[in-house]
Design a protein around this nucleic acid. Structure first.
Length: 569
RNA sequence: CGGUGAUUAGCGCAGCUUGGUAGCGCACUUGGUUUGGGUCCAAGGGGUCGUAGGUUCAAAUCCUACAUCACCGACCA
């Protein structure tokens, strides 16, 4: 490709609204342009990267035995009604009507379509297992699109769906996909970790997320400092504190805590560590038919954070997790949110393991402006259950039993699930077994955020000059940068010949034939992140040498013109 | 949806407080100059000041509504 016939579209200045580095660099390097909130056009350079990522994913999926398909992005609503997700999915599902006023959705994922397909196409156990994938545009009407293509509303995703008669067979394919994902991210050249993940509303066991480690990531990933345990914080279990609970030494006392509503304020006022306090959150439980949802109290140590997912997974608690309104709080506790405590409550109380291990703690007195000190479980309050409902924090013992917890940020780029029979049973997908009986299929699904990977790769590979692409996904493998080509016939001739030779050898090469000064060219190529710059100038031509500059290491070296192709061997 | 802020040339911004001629840098065009790290000089082109309404002799500037965009909390590849 010649720059004179190409759309380079690099920017000197950083557009004001780009927050994270990958978004800034994607705009500056001319990879994408914003069309509307969460919607992007991929410029030629960006599309080259996207295609390279896509091809690596495709190759490894095929190697792992998956078969490529392509499903429509627009899907009829009746499939979603059949699976139950027409009601369950919420406003993130973009719904629309065609000219006949028939309802459709923009596909945020394709379980319904693939399940409906398989229902018609397979009827015998002999046809299974099957693993079908596609690389397709998805649309999710995100509440808050941000960080450029990292969280766009429209994005490119590889999604695969496997179908099995037995759970053993599903687990085998799941493992095959797990291994394939590791190979994909290795080939992409990314620093990644598979982590144990929550199954979300789907339930069942067996789900891993694949995270690219980066400070700008939106997820907290929990590691053990001594074992290879890794989990999403949503999933990481907070173990009960070791040993027996200390014995009570203080008497229960009511103290005035005017204007102290937060744990920090209460702890400062009473001059105690936040670890000696508890906070009480009121959430909604499941509503009985025709009744109002009951209010349930969750009690956590003052310095701990509620883990929504863990709470939601408890049988008593409504999903999605909903906090009680001010009126509901007043009715249940008789006070405002800043003064709630377990003592005297007549609703269900669920206490976090760590909070349950406290003695002589501080809690709200269910009376505005008052707290208790010297509170003790089983003496001052007896009717409660204990559960793990908090986020782990750094330094906690690792749930794997070895070492302590370290937390890093990650960008979720892949997620694999054992779905089980959820869709197959809702949509009546089964085949005849060897014994001639109908058997509902069990399914797995496996996603990779293709467009998100492009952003994640940049988050992990950049410097002050621009992007430093891993070789496997760089838009161009090399750029030819001639010095003052307009004045030197020799430079021009050499550059042209080199360009033809590299092209003939199948190298993705960008020939910078613009009439620009060297500094302009260098700056552009460093911004775009081309791994290898081939600099041709009068300086080295007498010796038939050209300069090679490596974008990653920054090293410059001379190489004989005849040997340039060896660089790409 | 809630909270915050923004919207003036392709991009980055000033002008608004105190109403009266539409500005700067980059980019772009032309000519010259320079040529191994974002040259320099000169001349140019380009703007319904987000939209609608109001106040006023007069609105980018003051007021109201709306739209869009971004950031902070709930979603997820």
């Amino acid at each position: 490709m010649r720059t004179s016939q190409y759309l380079l579209s690099t920017l000197k200045e950083t557009p004001a609204h780009a927050e994270v580095i990958s978004h800034q660099l994607m705009l500056r390097a001319g990879l994408v342009r914003n069309v509307a909130s969460g919607l992007y056009t991929w410029l030629p350079t960006g599309l080259r990267v996207l295609k390279k990522v896509e091809n690596i994913v495709r190759e490894e999926m095929e190697k792992a035995g998956a078969i490529e398909t392509l499903m429509p992005m627009v899907q009829p609503a009746d499939l979603w009604q059949e699976s139950g997700r027409w009601e369950d999915y919420g406003p993130e599902l973009c719904r629309l009507q065609d000219r006949h006023e028939r309802p459709f959705v923009l596909g945020p994922t394709h379980e319904e379509v693939i399940t409906a397909l398989l229902r018609n196409e397979v009827s015998s156990y002999k046809q299974l297992p099957l693993n079908l994938f596609q690389i397709q545009t998805k649309f999710r009407d995100e509440i808050r699109p941000r960080f450029g293509v990292m969280r766009g509303r429209e994005f490119l995703m590889k999604d695969a769906y496997s179908f099995h008669i037995t759970d053993e067979c599903l687990k085998e394919t799941y493992q095959v996909m797990f291994d394939a994902y590791c190979r994909i991210f290795e080939r992409l050249g990314l620093d990644f970790r598979p982590v144990v993940a929550d199954n979300g509303s789907i339930g069942g066991e067996g789900s891993h997320e694949f995270h690219v480690l980066a400070d700008s990531g939106e997820d907290d990933i929990v590691f053990s400092d001594t074992s290879d345990y890794a989990a999403n914080i949503e999933k990481a279990e907070a173990l009960a504190p070791a040993g027996e609970r200390p014995t009570a030494t203080q008497d229960l006392a009511e103290v005035a805590t005017p204007n102290a509503k937060t744990i920090e304020e209460v702890a400062a006022l009473l001059n105690v560590d936040a670890k000696q306090t508890v906070k009480t959150l009121l959430v909604l439980g499941h509503a009985e038919e025709g009744q109002q949802a009951p209010v349930i109290a969750l009690v956590l140590r003052g310095d701990h954070q509620l883990n929504d997912i863990k709470a939601e997974n408890l049988a008593q608690i409504a999903s999605p997790l909903t906090f009680a309104s001010d009126e509901q709080i007043k009715a249940a506790a008789g006070c405002e949110a800043g003064s709630i405590g377990p003592i005297g409550l007549s609703i269900d109380v669920i206490v976090d393991r760590s909070a349950a291990h406290l003695a002589d703690f501080v809690c709200g007195a269910n009376k505005d402006g008052y707290h208790y000190t010297g509170a003790n479980w089983d003496r001052d309050f007896t009717n409660y259950t204990v559960a793990d409902i908090r986020n782990v924090v750094e330094g906690d013992p690792s749930p794997c039993g070895q070492g302590n917890i370290v937390i890093k940020r990650g960008i979720e780029v892949g997620h694999i699930f054992q779905l089980g029979e959820k869709y197959a049973s809702a949509m009546n997908l089964g085949v005849l077994t060897e014994a001639g009986k109908n058997q509902t299929l069990t399914m797995g699904c496996y996603g990779i955020g293709v467009s998100r990977i492009v952003a994640a790769a940049i988050e992990q590979n950049h410097d002050k000059y621009g992007i430093k692409w891993p070789k496997a996904i760089a838009p161009f493998q090399a750029a030819i940068v001639p010095m003052n080509m307009a004045k030197s016939a020799r430079v021009k001739e050499t550059a042209e010949k080199l360009y033809q030779d590299l092209k003939a050898a199948g190298i993705d090469v960008l020939f910078d034939d613009r009439k620009e000064r060297p500094g302009v060219m260098f700056a552009d190529h460093e911004l775009i992140g081309t791994p290898t710059l081939l600099v041709i100038g009068e300086r080295n031509l007498d010796e038939q040498m050209i300069e090679v500059k490596d974008r990653i290491s920054g090293e410059k070296s001379l190489i004989a013109i005849d040997n340039v192709l060896d660089l790409f061997a």
